[in-house]
Design a protein around this nucleic acid. Structure first.
Lengths: 227, 227
DNA sequence: CGTCTATATTGAACACGTTCAACATGAGGA
DNA sequence: TCCTCATGTTGAACGTGTTCAATATAGACG
């Protein structure tokens, strides 16, 4: 008979299976990269039939999405702590970037999957997609923290855009880093230094009355993109 | 006997088959987009067996590459002509951009294929790859023309980087345009206006002695990226 | 204990891009 | 005319991500 839908067991050994699949995938992704890793590989390593992987993850990309999510959540407290000792804006932004790179570094082999269809906000894995909104907004928050506690006064008209702009700056750096073939990704490090100086310098200058017209142009452009 | 390898017929009805495959692919790509179009579709429409398509094109992406190449070659003279009437740098860059968009517009449905693995210069279809070098350098040339005949004096240290920088600016606009869902891609048009003003304004200002330190920072950054 | 049913698991099947060994074609030379 | 063989052409087969109907499992309930 149609009884009340019994309280379905909330967590079961199912969570264990999910975990096994996730871990197997991570290991293989780190070893061979995203493209080179097969769903059959993952299922085999996890000791599950092929279809099993699809019971827990809607597809191969969804596993990477889970990683993306976990990484962002895991960084939240760490970043807050790491920001503690710094006053200079440049250092504060650097802290956020460094933390991000530290978390991505062991997974460099497969992070390119995150940018596969990056500009297409319809793609679930895109950094601009609805599916990644929560993750993205967490990252905005980190940049907001960096600015708020810093030693640079940001003009009021620019302020609301800064978290998103800094996030995009971060994404650009990550993209560069992913395909940076220099030893130890030294070029990325150099680019980070140079661009951070430039960024903070421009931000400082942006408060000068002389800069009003330029700031207005930049704002109009930013608003056109964000709209 | 091992005679001299007879002069192989240079062009044959083979060129016709190639053409048929290319045209069929273009039509289908325009209709359904790159992903949605099947190599089997293409072969069928061209009246060829599946394998036949691979005799003329190394893969699905190679067909798009052929289009990319053809588009760039076709624009060369047109752009040169169109630049004729303009003196203002802003107009000259706009002419180049407009021409590019005019050529891409009918193929908007599948141009995303060109950016599939854009940042990976190892991917043949990437705008940064060895395979697309010729195409890319043609595009640099167009930007060089725009600057040379314009009314803005570019500082000597910045000058050698301008063609590539303007090309990257163009690529960014195209990327934005591809995923611009506003009617008639009005946002892209607006972004083009705003960013062009900003760009030319900055370029003008960059000659001011006051700007020397800022220019130096930008240069260092650009050189880090290009290296 | 036995039955029921949502949950979990399986493996065959599909559509895709790509590869390849086999075969067809037709221009040049005997 | 017939042979040769580089050029074209074919379709079966492979490995891939993904789907799905069928089956197994195990906790809830009588």
């Amino acid at each position: 008979m149609n009884t009340v839908p019994v309280k379905t067991r909330p967590t079961l050994r199912a969570e264990d299976t999910r975990r096994r699949i996730y871990e197997a995938a991570m290991e293989l992704f780190r070893e061979k990269g995203f493209e080179q890793t097969t769903m059959r590989d993952i299922a085999a390593k996890a000791g599950v039939a092929l279809g099993g992987a699809y019971y827990y993850f809607s597809g191969k990309e969804a596993i990477v999405l889970a990683f993306y999510h976990e990484m962002q959540e895991g960084s939240h407290q760490e970043i807050l702590d790491a920001l503690g000792g710094h006053k200079k804006l440049k250092d504060r932004i650097r802290v956020v970037l460094e933390k991000r790179f530290a978390l991505l570094e062991p997974n460099r082999m497969f992070c390119d999957a995150l940018f596969r269809h990056a500009p297409d906000s319809a793609d679930p894995l895109s950094p601009f997609s609805e599916e990644t909104r929560a993750i993205r907004e967490r990252a905005f928050e980190h940049m907001q923290w960096a600015i708020e506690g810093g030693d640079v006064k940001v003009p009021a008209d620019l302020a609301p855009h800064m978290p998103r702009l800094l996030w995009m700056y971060q994404m650009g750096l990550i993209l560069f880093w992913l395909y940076d073939r220099s030893p130890q990704q030294a070029r990325t490090r150099k680019l980070m230094d140079k661009s951070l100086s430039l960024l903070v310098g421009l931000l400082r200058a942006s408060s000068l009355p002389l800069m009003k017209p330029l700031r207005k142009m930049v704002l109009e452009m930013v608003e056109t993109v964000e709209q």
